[in-house]
Design a protein around this nucleic acid. Structure first.
Lengths: 262, 262
DNA sequence: CGCGACTTTGAACACCATCAAACCCGGTGG
DNA sequence: CCACCGGGTTTGATGGTGTTCAAAGTCGCG
């Protein structure tokens, strides 16, 4: 574990811009307030009352761009902030000492990353952008200070962490008891729902990750992922053109793994 | 994995403090204070300063016995409290609508359960005692109130949840990329470490769970678990008599899955 | 154009699941 | 006392699913 902390991580330093400064002089592009963010119903403020969201505006979010293929943070780095995806897609990976690594999740706009770093004060995982992306860095200390004053905020943060646990539970279920078709169906339906929640089509979308990354996430080899896609095409459940997916029969796809999840 | 250093078990006797504020319907439930609990270095108070632990004493823990085979809580029940195991062993399971269920974890003395219920306000999983057991019920509302006053406590709770996320990450790695021998070796070494942290032998112990439960947890069938045990016996890594395990060669067992985890 | 990264498809094989039988052990009841 | 039962475990034989190895196709890009 020889991880030079910030050496190669980012060319662009995170900028923490206070809200007053922002009003006064800072370029508006670099700071954000939750209350006027278009992602507020998906992201950190989800489910909070308006006054509480305004409280969040006091947070000094730093915005940062991350180029495709670049890491947002790496395993071993000290934990300072959690991250909210503004645009783009990320993968989180856990590395083994023998070089193998496994994808533990994909994050889309409005989703949070880095909650796992809190346990040890260092990130155990690495987050890499799958396309050019933009994030909000939410300083954890500051978030804790704020939530000490607000029960609602405190609870919301707890719920977010709990939701992450629940998410991983379903993934364990998937990895522990589903076959290849069920796994891929579950994955596609999950992506479909998340696309829909973001106002995109639930039945036609572009995957940002490679077959190998999907396979790593689902616990199967890239060849098996590819074969399973082909099988779905043959069954007329999907149309697939490389990473472009069109779901032809959502119900049948759902039936493929019905009763297996939740 | 995260193993807090083990401190003296024998010394401090458990103190039960009866409280005047007790609900009418409640049985003469005993309450417990964290500061004098023999599990305090493993459990909720782990890593907290003495003053903060004393703050925790203000929590009205309910103690409860759970008989072998009985549920502590069931999927679907409303979430009120998180639970700390005082004695005994539990399994957490996630059920599928088709009746299949999967074990998502085992909890031993000092470990917490139920954190996943916070997300939706109901427990998504069921916790069942594998032997006669005793737990502390930690009312979540009350815990939140307390932690609003104490940054340290607030952080500790956050760390606990994060640790759960990290734990599940390792399990995903296991389920996603290990073969049968690696999985069982990882499981046995994990149990071994947890036994050791509780002052028991790291090399000889009694498993509380069946082959089927181990299999469910590790994503394999009970027959495969059994065969893998036999293979380890043949390799002179273990002695196995039903659920009684003696590890003969800890290093070799470690080598079996070296580099795969973390 | 040609290279590299990614994807698809085929063929053979390995590993684990499945089905089946036997065993062990404690508990119950004739 | 023994027979019987049920739950859990072990072991064998067989087959299926997904992996592995290999080759060829596609696409973007310098």
């Amino acid at each position: 574990m020889s991880q030079p902390a910030f050496a190669e991580t980012s060319s662009v330093p995170i900028q923490f811009v206070s809200r007053s400064r922002q009003r006064a002089e800072a370029p508006p592009a670099l700071t954000t307030v939750c209350s006027s963010c278009h992602l507020k119903d998906l992201c950190l403020p989800c489910g909070m009352s308006a006054p509480t969201v305004e409280r969040l505006d006091g947070l000094h979010f730093g915005r940062r761009r991350v180029k495709a293929g670049q890491p947002l943070y790496r395993a071993g780095e000290s934990f300072q902030a959690i991250y909210a995806v503004r645009s783009g897609t990320f993968k989180s990976t856990l590395g083994a000492t023998d070089g193998r690594e496994q994808v533990t999740g994909f994050a889309m706009a409005g989703e949070l990353m880095g909650l796992d770093g809190l346990a040890q004060g260092r990130h155990p995982s690495t987050a890499v952008a799958l396309e050019d992306a933009e994030i909000c860095a939410i300083p954890y200390d500051h978030l804790m200070e704020l939530s000490a004053d607000s029960g609602e905020l405190q609870r919301a943060v707890g719920r977010l962490m709990s939701r992450e646990i629940v998410r991983e539970h379903s993934l364990m279920m998937l990895l522990g008891s589903m076959n290849a078709e069920e796994r891929l169906a579950a994955f596609l339906l999950n992506v479909s729902q998340r696309m829909k929640a973001r106002g995109w089509s639930a039945t036609e979308f572009h995957l940002r990750m490679s077959r190998a990354e999907i396979g790593s996430y689902l616990g199967m080899k890239l060849e098996t992922v590819s074969r399973t896609f082909s099988a779905f095409v043959q069954q007329r459940l999907l149309e697939v053109d490389k990473r472009h997916i069109r779901i032809l029969d959502l119900e049948a796809l759902t039936r493929t793994f019905e009763g297996r999840l939740q």
